[in-house]
Design a protein around this nucleic acid. Structure first.
Lengths: 217, 217
DNA sequence: TGATGTGAAGCGGTTCACAGCG
DNA sequence: CGCTGTGAACCGCTTCACATCA
């Protein structure tokens, strides 16, 4: 099976499947059909089989999939066979919340460095990680071998921080600042914007209330 | 122009355009072409024109769009002409971070109620909002006229909380718990899962390193 | 028998290319 | 002349339907 082009939505779903499968694993379920799995993660069975078939065939006809095997397979595909070293830039409200988020180490992500500019935060240790001054970013990132970064700075600084991160060798960035980051194409960036999500929900609310407007403006 | 079916990705982009346009407004820019706007938010000019054309025609040929008019138009489309009352369930790390997040009120979302089960948090006021016991959810939600809710509870409680929310009349839910919420189709749900985003990034990192694997498993 | 794996069909979103208009 | 608005072409993801095989 050749390594094909995988769409972003497929990758998202693979993560979704994995999340559900781990849940099943905790419940000691050891075999599952694409149909049951579909119900658990809000997909369709055909979609699941198609997604998996992009990488190989992992099921047994007439029976279904082995939960533990499929977990291992998906972890392999997603690159979760290793632990990832994460740096956090910006130790404000969101940043601190992430530092204390137990699911990160539990799922293979170790926050090994944190940066901020505010003098009163420097040197303090939050959830076992010392907060370093932003000037030392390049140095610490290289020294500790950081692979993934989370940006939780104000929007004004995000682009600049991002540039410094990838110049220091970070190739994946999760951005919580509400700005579009422009980046070289060999750097992977995803942005999470809470307000944007809320706005999307509100569109649906107001759209329902006006089901058949004739002229828009 | 009839009210058409708008895809989720279009709605997301409209929010994206709006974010960039507000930025432009702050810089006193008053007219912009689809092309320049495209550069600012990582889209294509054709995409922007197509998206907008679903709702009407708002530009001037040969000139571009009026920034302030387009902001107003998009706010109208997205239902942001009003302020929304938000309830927060779960005042842990993420919940507290959201309570203190200034962009919410700034962008039209007022957190008017917060709930938790932990006795030591009850009655305390976080960022101007009193934390109420979870039992009072229905009562407070109805009393205050809450329209939108944010779930930031542990995953085990999320589904139950969600059900109670929509039974109390909440029609839009932003969910930070890493579980698939099943909901009636007249309730809008979006889930933000930080670990899932990180996993997606890691796929790209490892996929780059193995550009042409011949046999997958 | 029952569920997988997968070509083929269907569909919806994106891009193209240009007519239309200020 | 420049940029919008938009039908038409294109492309890729999703769904269907069934041959396949444990």
């Amino acid at each position: 099976m050749k390594q094909p082009k995988i769409s972003d939505s497929t990758v998202r779903r693979l993560s979704l499947y994995l999340r559900a499968l781990r849940e099943l694993q905790r419940m000691d379920r050891d075999v599952i059909s694409s149909q049951s799995l579909a119900r658990l993660c809000g997909a369709t069975s055909a979609q699941i089989r198609k997604d998996l078939s992009l990488f190989g065939s992992f099921g047994k006809r007439g029976r279904g999939y082995s939960v533990s095997e499929l977990v291992a397979t998906l972890e392999g595909i997603l690159g979760l066979g290793q632990r990832w070293k994460v740096a956090l830039v910006g130790v404000g409200k969101i940043g601190s919340a992430l530092l204390g988020y137990r699911d990160l180490p539990r799922r293979g992500f170790d926050v090994v460095a944190a940066f901020d500019t505010a003098a009163e935060k420097l040197g303090r240790t939050v959830a076992g990680v010392e907060v370093s001054p932003l000037e030392e970013l390049e140095e610490v990132v290289r020294e500790k071998g950081v692979e993934v970064a989370v940006i939780a700075t104000p929007p004004e600084s995000a682009q600049e921080v991002a540039r410094r991160l990838w110049e220091a060798g970070v190739a994946a960035i999760l951005n919580f600042a509400p700005v579009k980051l422009s980046s070289p194409e060999d750097v992977a960036v995803r942005t999470v914007d809470v307000v944007l999500e809320l706005e999307g929900l509100c569109y649906l609310l107001t759209a329902e209330e006006r089901p058949h407007v004739e002229v828009w403006r």
